[in-house]
């Protein structure tokens, strides 16, 4: 009995110190082994823009960028954030408050209703822009052309929206690439 008690106390005490870039700011914190990145971002750093939807990797509301790539933060262990570069929806906005073109485009197209999916959508669209912009740099990788409407749809399959019917969200994304083409 005593031994068990000791063991469970030990368990609680094991914390990991991690350090990473969060929206271009170096941060350090102590976490439990099983903490997921979504909870860390929302509860420890009070960045509430990243939404908890299903906690099962299904809805994409919790999407953040890890080293520029989109990941479900609900299924990502915070331990593995150590040393990485993490961007949340709050990191898209410039320090003077100017919105990112992805956000502008979503607003312009009326692609937001209740807004619960919006941060995740914005992060996924931003990730697709990153992939497109960085495409030419990785040897052996498929060359990426400007994504077609169907490719945009395929890319956003992991982001569910219960309100808009998707058309306006896809319009918003498509227009960003049309702009890049000019």
């Amino acid at each position: 009995m005593i031994k068990e008690h000791k063991e469970s106390r030990l368990k609680e005490e094991v914390l990991h110190v991690i350090s990473f870039m969060l929206n271009e700011r170096q941060v350090t914190c102590k976490i439990k082994s099983s903490t997921v990145l979504l909870d860390l971002i929302r509860d420890h750093f009070s960045l509430k823009g990243t939404k908890p939807g299903c906690y099962e990797g299904e809805c994409g509301a919790c999407t953040v960028l890890i080293n520029e790539a989109p990941v479900n933060s609900c299924l990502y262990l915070a331990v593995n954030a150590n040393g990485k570069n993490i961007t949340t929806i709050e990191g898209l906005v410039k320090s003077d408050g100017t919105l990112h073109p992805v956000q502008e485009s979503l607003i312009e197209h009326g692609a937001i209703q209740c807004g619960f999916c919006t941060s995740g959508m914005a992060m996924s669209i931003k990730a697709l822009m990153n992939q497109y912009e960085n495409a030419q740099h990785v040897p052996g990788d498929i060359r990426i052309e400007i994504p077609t409407r169907n490719e945009i749809k395929k890319y956003l399959e992991g982001n569910l929206c219960r309100c808009t019917g998707y058309v306006k969200i896809i319009d918003a994304a498509e227009q960003l690439f049309a702009k890049e083409d000019q």
Binding site: I66, P70, V71, N72, S124, G158
Partner: peptide, 9 residues
Amino acid sequence: LASTQIRQV
């Protein structure tokens, strides 16, 4: 396999 986000991991 799954989605863009899951394929990353």
